[in-house]
Design a protein around this nucleic acid. Structure first.
Lengths: 216, 216
DNA sequence: AATTTATCGATTATAACATATCGAATGGAT
DNA sequence: ATCCATTCGATATGTTATAATCGATAAATT
């Protein structure tokens, strides 16, 4: 089962399973079937089974998967079991919100420090240091940081990305609503709110249109 | 060209084009070709052309698209030209960050008010009212709000969603890391950071593994 | 012990999607 | 005025993701 090649769509569904498994009450049965999971999350049972088969092999007919073991398997697959260090650039509103979000530990993510062009404080509310952006590249090197989180305005995002890459970063989590040009081997994950909004907006438009037509 | 059926993948790419077109300097040529766009954003030129053909028909050989007209076409298609009202539930760190984000106007989104189970203030920094969550359903009805933004902890998300739907909401933008059960016709757009993290995390794991193997 | 039932896992089929290729049209160059 | 380069648009191919089908297995029941 271990890795080889995994489709990105599967990857995006795994956290969903994980979250559901974890929120199951303590008293529930120690086993859960792929079918049950599928029903709970409103997806096809075949798809769920296939996804689970990619990361685990503990499925037994009539019984299902052992919940604890399955959780462990998914977490291990997603790399949530060993923490990765990251830094955040852009200590604005969004940046601070992310720094304050305590849930990242759960996903094996540890934000070491924040950087800003004009640091208004030396430490965040949570006690994480805030440095001037000029220290960025050097910090990456000395701490061997592999992930950078960009929460700066769009016009500065590319420049920040370049500095991160120069510092040896391998993955970028980009919250700036702009395209980043990066060399191959560097992964950019865009958390673009504009795309989500587009989906919602078009849906609403269709919905309203439909309503008008049924009224006729 | 107008609507009919549009694939979700196309939809997600359109905001990228739009953002790039808008950031082009004033002095640049009034026309742009699909080829140029493709190169700038690092995508296939055929795909870009196909996408643009879905929303516009102003493409002319040798010239390309008129930039202004293309921007208008995309914005109209995405519904950015007429604003839609929305409300936000959960005035925590993330919720406040979203309220403070001024860029939403540009996408035709107008957040009317925020709701919280324990409002700590009656107004946000931006002057938007903050109500108790008990007023939620009534507010939706009287203001005919169609979109709700959920930024409450995962355990309360489903309950909030139910109230929104009871109030007549048609689209939900869900920032809570949990699955929401909704009746058909209601769209849930999950802005799940966990999925993005999963993609990044697995990439990093593969990257590290690769490095070790090349060192051998 | 045999049968039934529920579930996993593999195989196959379908559909969506991205990519490549080709012809047509247009504006600029010669 | 003719030719050429560029770009759009449409068609065709390959790839990938999704869905449906089938057999096998293990527990529960009779």
């Amino acid at each position: 089962m271990e890795s080889k090649k995994i489709s990105k769509s599967v990857l995006k569904r795994l956290p969903g399973y994980l979250a559901y498994l974890k929120t199951m009450p303590e008293g529930s049965a120690p086993h859960i079937s792929a079918t049950a999971l599928a029903n709970a999350l409103g997806m096809g049972e075949v798809q769920v089974r296939k996804d689970l088969a990619m990361v685990s092999d503990g499925g037994r007919p009539k019984i299902g998967y052992q919940r604890e073991a399955l959780i462990d398997d998914i977490e291990q697959f997603l790399g949530y079991d060993n923490t990765t260090d990251a830094i955040l650039i852009g200590a604005g509103k969004l940046g601070q919100a992310l720094m304050a979000y305590s849930g990242f530990d759960e996903y094996g993510l540890n934000i070491l420090a924040a950087f800003d062009a004009n640091p208004k404080m030396s430490r965040t509310e949570e006690g994480k240091p805030v440095y001037n952006v000029s220290k960025l590249e050097q910090f990456c090197r000395t701490h061997k940081v592999l992930m950078g989180i960009i929460t700066v305005p769009a016009e500065h995002a590319q420049s920040v990305a370049d500095q991160l890459i120069a510092g040896g970063i391998k993955a970028i989590w980009n919250f700036a609503p702009t395209h980043l040009d990066v060399p191959p081997g560097i992964l950019v994950q865009n958390e673009n709110m504009a795309t989500s909004l587009a989906v919602l907006s078009v849906h609403l438009k269709a919905q309203i249109k439909e309503e008008k037509e049924t009224k006729k």
